[in-house]
Amino acid sequence: MLVSIAIRILVLVLLILPVFLDCYTKLLAASALTLAIFTVSWLYLEKDLGWASLGHSIPFGVSAYLFAINPLLLFFSPLTTFLLFPLSIFGKHTFPFASFVFSVFLWYLAHHIVFEGKGGEEGFRAPSINLDLIYLISVTILILSCLLIWKISNSYFGLKVKAVRDDEIAAKAIGINSLPFKVFGFAISCSLASIAGILHAAIFGHVSPGVFSPYFSLFPFVAATIGQGKIWSSILGSYTVVFLSWFLSPYVPEFHYAIYAVALILASYTQSYARSDRSV
């Protein structure tokens, strides 16, 4: 209990503190913040729906691309749900890898996206927004998304979503049609991931095929592993990965990949993944 309160206070401090610091720290914090929103979106899909996506960079990256090509296209970003959702036909066990492979495929494909003579491996320039403003927007969105997920998760509706996660046949036996609940859950998660992608593009003012790279597709999984599947600690986990990799990269090349390797190996031992698994 005490630990969880401490974590919440720490997260709040991490959210507020950068407002008073210099541009560089704010950029780092903003980057960690968007990735925290990204992690929260992933965590909802994994916790409440039981689908662990290793290709969550699909909604993240596609929305970032749409936003960069034309900011008005951002309204289409919730449609990215229909890129990720069809992969659920592979079943819960294969879904992580199907989504991972699909995100890698999009990574390659993104090198070929050319629009009005721009793009390709160079990527697109995204509308850049004032850092202070976007930082405040990101903080608001993170808090709102946590609230939203908390609210949905604890409602009767959320209970049905969780029921579908645990056993679709049992859900049918008590009259719950699983499809709409699944689509709804995917839509919530993908929309949040899309928002994170758009914020990411707006912060760096540029979108390149790198948004589909394993760095992003595996990020939420790794952050959630560090946070042991709890929402607040996973936010802290995102900050940890971002800060550690920025600060340690000059000493250990691509430090984040070392963190990734450790987190993936640990995650396969600890039970923090695909929770519906634990039942049967």
């Binding site: 560089y24 950029l27 980057s31 990411h200 760096f204 390149s208 790198g210 990269s249």
Partner: peptide
């Protein structure tokens, strides 16, 4: 000398830390 990685994101932060 600062590491700018292979991504625009890493470049921007490395740039700003050099500015600092």
């Amino acid at each position: 000398i600062y590491d700018c990685g292979d991504k625009p994101e890493t470049t921007k932060t490395a740039f700003l830390s050099l500015v600092r």
